[in-house]
Design a protein around this nucleic acid. Structure first.
Lengths: 372, 372
DNA sequence: TTCGAATCTGACAACGTTATCTGATCAGCC
DNA sequence: GGCTGATCAGATAACGTTGTCAGATTCGAA
């Protein structure tokens, strides 16, 4: 076959040969990607006109526009993202920056962002950032090598001042997910963590609990402090006191929740309920309870925060706060795409609603006050 | 400020104005990305020489090479990936294709691939593919819009014939993770699912179980069949029979595991152990057991497959098979990067070792035969 | 020295797209 | 019918890099 083609070239002369060679390739359906010029010659217009049509620019007659569109569809043309990125500076890539992949919301967050990106013809480059290292430097490397149009920052990077500074300096659009502070300083998406923790604590109090333990989240995450504040406000409002021994530091991991659970539950004055600042730690508390022979919810009520998948498949299922991480990141991607098109945002600080999910891990405390 | 600049341009003449404007920008340290030409002028060589140095090409004097390297480092130069992709066809992007983001291995897999990519200066574009839709078309869209250098296919896409066909047609390198068949037909990474299931079943038999239920995996996943085959071989080898009622269809989800668990355990002749083809279903079985008032491992032993994070944080912890998904994908990324450099692979079909993780969810059956 | 070969360096084209400018067409108006 | 402005289309130049080829330099040997 290659022989056949070269013979044709030898027979015909000069550019005519090239032309015919070219159309042969197209006829054969060679897997070369069609370019904008292929579309142009098929539609019998200049390639610039094709570009105009494809980018929705004005000043193209309806008839020509339709001819171009038909040609593009027939050739199954798709623009070369590299060439676009080279000229326009827009890469149509959005970065998804996260720190610890074990944070359970990461998968859900990623999916939300992914869906929205795909709808808009964007793609997602997932990039881990080690928040113990030099965050600004890592971010600068990622940005400058991929020329990202924008980045989504997940906790705890969303509260890293260096990260925000470098993004501002580079002029890269960014949306923060669930930042603790500075919600007026640039686009972000969040739920009201304080109010959510308040509501969940009210739920526990409403069940009849008065001695409630709290497992604090990772101190680097802004949400940790907000959740604790909500818990404390609900307790104070109900006239309940929180003993210092019932506030235990955790780090958003299962293991930290487990040791916190041991500390809280393996003591003479143990609480009748424990509220952990995320689901993983709540499951850790549950494991500790099981280890100590306490069954939930009969002897100990346990509540978490986030409503991750793990909360739904534990036994008993975990009472928790639903944080719509996927929708939050979908909104974040949306905002970035809007910004990339140089349009203004309706609302740069978007607050989404949470929901209390009361499940099997919480119940009224045992009628008899526990004596240990 | 814009006014100021235009005034300068108006005062000076033509290209000279442009030049001075340019150097002003550099002096100010504007955040424009340095290009290869900036490096060239700083090192006082042509930009082509810089390109040569940066790509490790020969024919550059050591002294010049060092000068260029120093200039590049001083300017913190990083090449524009779009321009590179445009000319070379190489995008330095690797696609990570998966179907259902709920498959628990996805996160782990992604991290493995990510780590290796970053080391090699590559990036990862994560792309979901709906395997109920037109898989080849979706893949073609992703490839042609991003010009990926290669793709990693996770189950069940790794067994989709259409996916492989389109990748071959487009000439895009691909590595399959855990394919069922065709391990000689192109690069892939896998563990011996059959042997692993065999070993885990032996473990259960070794504990004293003789009536063992099995929850089958999603029929579209090749691994499902291999795992079942391993289970059946171990049973047959031990002279044990498997009742049809003890083989239940599942779909790799928690819910399917739960209903399978109900079917298996809520019957007069229930097995003393259940082996589910993945961890999620095993946790579903565990939830069903709890629902029925059966405690694991005292009254029912439960085992899974994959050793996902959820297996480690359940109570009791799940006995399972460790499949090193992260390392598998790391290897896959490695293979793709090797292929992108036009080098040959040492071993296109890479088999990695598995490990049995015996944990709290399995134990010897109750001494007295269970009477229900 | 002088020549040839090896080594090094640079000018220029190319990749596929968008942006800018300039030219062509056409309708409406005097 | 000629002028004006609006609308449309195309030619050409970027974007930042790598590939090609030709020119310059160096070095060793005659």
């Amino acid at each position: 076959m290659a022989e056949d083609v070269s013979r044709r070239q030898a027979l015909a002369g000069g550019s005519e040969a090239r032309e015919s060679f070219h159309s042969v390739r197209l006829e054969i359906g060679l897997s070369r990607q069609p370019t904008i010029k292929d579309v142009a010659s098929k539609a019998e217009v200049s390639f610039k006109t094709v570009s105009r049509v494809l980018n929705g620019e004005p000043h193209v007659r309806k008839e020509v526009r339709e001819r171009v569109l038909a040609a593009a569809a027939a050739l199954d043309y798709r623009p070369n993202i590299a060439a676009r990125g080279l000229i326009g500076g827009r890469s149509r890539l959005i970065g998804f920056l996260y720190d610890n992949p074990n944070y359970s919301y990461v998968t859900e967050a990623e999916i939300g962002a992914l869906l929205r990106c795909r709808e808009a013809g964007y793609h997602l480059a997932v990039e881990p950032v080690d928040s113990r290292g030099d965050v600004p430097r890592q971010i600068e490397q990622i940005i400058s090598s991929l020329r990202l149009d924008g980045v989504i920052l997940t906790p705890p990077i969303s509260d890293d001042p260096g990260a925000l500074a470098v993004l501002d300096r580079l002029g890269v659009a960014h949306v923060r997910i669930a930042p603790e502070a500075g919600r007026d300083k640039g686009p972000c998406v969040f739920i009201d963590d304080e109010a959510a923790a308040f509501a969940l604590t009210r739920h526990l109090i409403g069940l009849g609990h008065s001695t409630i333990g709290f497992v604090q989240g990772h101190p680097d995450h802004g949400a940790s402090h907000l959740r604790q504040a909500g818990f404390e406000r609900a307790m104070a409002q109900a006239g309940l006191t929180t003993r210092p021994a019932h506030m235990v530091q955790g780090y958003f991991t299962f293991e930290s929740g487990m040791s916190a659970g041991r500390a809280l539950l393996d003591a003479p004055d143990r609480p009748t309920a424990v509220f952990a600042a995320n689901d993983k730690m709540a499951l850790g508390v549950m494991a500790a309870a099981r280890e100590l022979g306490l069954s939930a919810p009969e002897q100990i009520s346990i509540a978490g925060f986030d409503d991750t998948r793990a909360a739904q498949i534990s036994s008993p299922q975990l009472t928790t706060v639903r944080q719509p991480v996927d929708i939050m990141c979908q909104a974040a991607a949306d905002m970035l795409i809007t910004l990339a098109a140089n349009e203004a945002l309706d609302d740069p600080a978007l607050q989404l609603p949470f929901e209390i999910r009361a499940r099997g891990s919480t119940a009224a405390p045992a009628a008899e006050p526990q004596s240990v």
